[in-house]
Every structure is written in structure tokens, then in C-alpha cells.
């Protein structure tokens, strides 16, 4: 697919879409959205880029193998689940919250980190599967 229009648009869309996916991730606790859907949107953004510019270009933009996002995401999720045991001695996965509101983000708690973990895992899984399949075809 060597369409100049798509190529031009996709390079501009990539950062915008990723920004949007982060926005969806962050608003998840109060409004429709969340880590899973955010991750899917980010994955689609990269795939769109890959369609327009070829896989090698997208890999360059990514700088690392998308598979590495999986262990990173899993670790963040597990750490956020373990945090209450370590920090306050509560049972696994108890929600911990920072009392004050933070600008833009709103309240910050362990659930947000957990969701970020989910977000990264979903990107990693989708991209790994689709990149692998498209390379092997």
C-alpha cells in the first residue's frame, strides 16, 4: 500500500491516536474508557502506521520489540496488586489512593497503575500477534 495520502496522514495520526489512547486510559475511572480499550486504540494506531509505511518503519518508531511491552505491563499490574501488601499491609489488590487531586489526572490510585499495566499488555499482545503474522505471510 503505497498511497502518499495515507502515508502522510498516518505519520500525523500516530501521535494523535496514541495521545487519544492515553486519554481514554486516564478517563477510564470516571467515564467510558479504560486500559483495555486504550490499549486496543494504541495498537490500531501502530498498525495503521505499519500499513502505510511498512513494518520496518513502524519497528523503528517503536524502537523495541512490542513483545517487551508484555512483561513490562504484567510487572506493573502485579506490583500495583502487591503494593497494598507491601505498603500498608492490606490484602492483595486493595485499592490505595493518594488523597489530593492532581491536575488533569484527578485522583491517583493503585487502580490506575493496574490499568496502565493492562494497557501495555494489550498493546504488546496485539502488536506481537499481528506483526508476527504479517511477517510470516
Amino acid at each position: 500500500m503505497k498511497s502518499l495520502i495515507l502515508k502522510t496522514v498516518s505519520t500525523t495520526l500516530l501521535p494523535l491516536l496514541i495521545l487519544f489512547s492515553v486519554f481514554v486510559l486516564l478517563r477510564g475511572h470516571y467515564l467510558p474508557g479504560g486500559g483495555f480499550i486504550g490499549g486496543l486504540i494504541a495498537a490500531i494506531a501502530f498498525i495503521l502506521h505499519a500499513f502505510a509505511n511498512g513494518l520496518t518503519q513502524t519497528r523503528k518508531v517503536l524502537r523495541m520489540h512490542p513483545g517487551f511491552l508484555i512483561p513490562i505491563g504484567l510487572s506493573i499490574a502485579i506490583l500495583s496488586a502487591l503494593a497494598p501488601i507491601i505498603l500498608t499491609g492490606d490484602p492483595l489488590m486493595t485499592g490505595l489512593w493518594y488523597e489530593k487531586d492532581i491536575a488533569i489526572l484527578g485522583k491517583i490510585g493503585s487502580a490506575l497503575f493496574f490499568d496502565t499495566g493492562v494497557y501495555l499488555v494489550v498493546i504488546g499482545v496485539c502488536l506481537t500477534i499481528i506483526f508476527t503474522i504479517s511477517e510470516s505471510v
Partner: peptide, 24 residues
């Protein structure tokens, strides 16, 4: 309990967070 307004997401990351953990 979970300081969230989006019930679906609160269920996913908090009430039934362990399920989500296994799913990922």
C-alpha cells in the same frame, strides 16, 4: 469503595481485578 464513577471499569480494575490479572 473504589472512588470511580465508571462502574464497568471499576469492576474490571478493582472489584474483580484479580480476574483481569488472570486475563492479561
Amino acid at each position: 469503595l473504589a472512588k470511580g464513577k465508571n462502574v464497568v471499569n471499576v469492576i474490571l480494575v478493582d472489584f474483580r481485578g484479580f480476574d483481569t490479572m488472570i486475563e492479561i
